[in-house]
């Protein structure tokens, strides 16, 4: 089974949204365009459209999250859906309930959509393969595999600033090995036409054979971001220092922390992105995070529009098929 098989219905419309891998350029562009039409809803006095009225969306979070969960919740509410937040890491699984049983229990409550976050790669695929035919699954991040709505809000942000993708030089910097954001970004950027895509980080955090995904690898930050139009910084989790991958935060920041000085090797109009939450002084200097090139807070705003777009497109296709 290919990625596209499970994600699309027989008319090629989104049924689940699990990964950016294998989706067409047209479909990705459609999502960005739909998001653009929702972007103004947030600016209204009454921030609601009735597209998902009567639908029930369950935020099924097996792993802690603040911004992803809240932006999905806001997006669903702005589409007039009923939203239920379930933090499973502190309930069922700790009582020994299997993932399958949790799913079947929730299905029995007649919901329409699961937003899933899970610590295991492939969890969203697994859940999409398990749920009843009428239920759609959106991946809110699974292990190191994918975080497709994050990648698309990043694409949206890039398009806002750079108009189009071909010809851009994009650098993804940091802990690529453990990053679902990086993987989803790579697939989306390649599909949207970015040819000069760079991965920058210490060798211990660059996964094996990543060049198979069509990227170039740099172990030197300044060389990697030279003349870049877009830089995405990845969050570095502190536990990496304890696992023989890195010597210290100090050395990491010295080598890979994005400072104003290092940023000079990029293009003058470079934008700096970060999926958050940021570690100031570890992967990014405060002056850069809050500086004129940073679009980090715009990314959060765009996240709501992207999530509205994905939910609306999936529900639109589902309603039409019934």
């Amino acid at each position: 089974m290919t990625e596209t098989d499970i994600q699309l219905d027989h008319k090629g419309r989104l049924k689940h949204f699990l990964t950016t891998e294998g989706l067409s350029r047209q479909l990705l562009t459609d999502i960005l365009d739909t998001a653009a039409s929702f972007a103004e809803v947030g600016g209204r006095a009454v921030k609601k459209v009735p597209l998902l009225r009567g639908k029930t969306v369950i935020n099924l979070f097996f792993e802690a999250s603040t911004r992803t969960r809240t932006t999905f919740e806001l997006a669903a509410k702005r589409l007039s859906a009923d939203v239920l937040n379930l933090n499973i890491s502190t309930s069922s699984t700790s009582k020994g309930e299997s993932l399958q049983d949790t799913l079947h229990t929730l299905e029995a409550m007649h919901c329409d959509m699961f937003i899933v976050r899970h610590a295991s790669s492939g969890a969203a695929h697994f859940i999409a393969g398990q749920v009843a035919p009428g239920i759609s699954v959106i991946n809110g991040g699974d292990g190191r595999n994918a975080h497709p709505t994050q990648a698309l809000l990043d694409m949206y942000t890039i398009r806002e600033h750079k108009r189009d993708f071909p010809g851009l030089r994009v650098a993804i910097v940091g802990d690529v090995a453990h990053s679902r954001v990086a993987r989803s970004q790579i697939h989306a950027l390649k599909t949207l036409g970015v040819e000069d895509l760079r991965i920058v980080g210490p060798k211990t955090l660059i996964p094996a054979d990543i060049t198979a995904l069509g990227v170039r690898v740099f172990y030197d930050l300044e060389a990697g971001i030279e003349n870049a139009d877009v830089i995405t910084m990845l969050r570095l989790q502190r536990e990496r220092m304890r696992s023989a991958l890195l010597p210290s935060e100090h050395e990491y920041f010295a080598c890979y922390g994005l400072t104003e000085k290092k940023l000079k090797s990029a293009r003058k109009d470079v934008i700096v992105m970060h999926p958050g939450p940021i570690n100031r002084g570890v992967e990014i200097d405060t002056h850069v995070a809050d500086g004129p090139h940073s679009v980090i807070l715009q990314q959060v705003t765009h996240g709501i529009a992207i999530r509205m777009a994905v939910m609306a497109m999936i529900m639109g296709a589902a309603t039409e098929s019934h």
Binding site: S121, G122, G143, R144, N145, A208, I210, A212, L213
Partner: peptide, 15 residues
């Protein structure tokens, strides 16, 4: 197995 597939799937690799 550690390689392009483990990288694509984001699964913990065994070299």
């Amino acid at each position: 197995h550690e390689g392009a597939t483990s990288t694509r799937l984001g699964l913990p690799p065994i070299p």
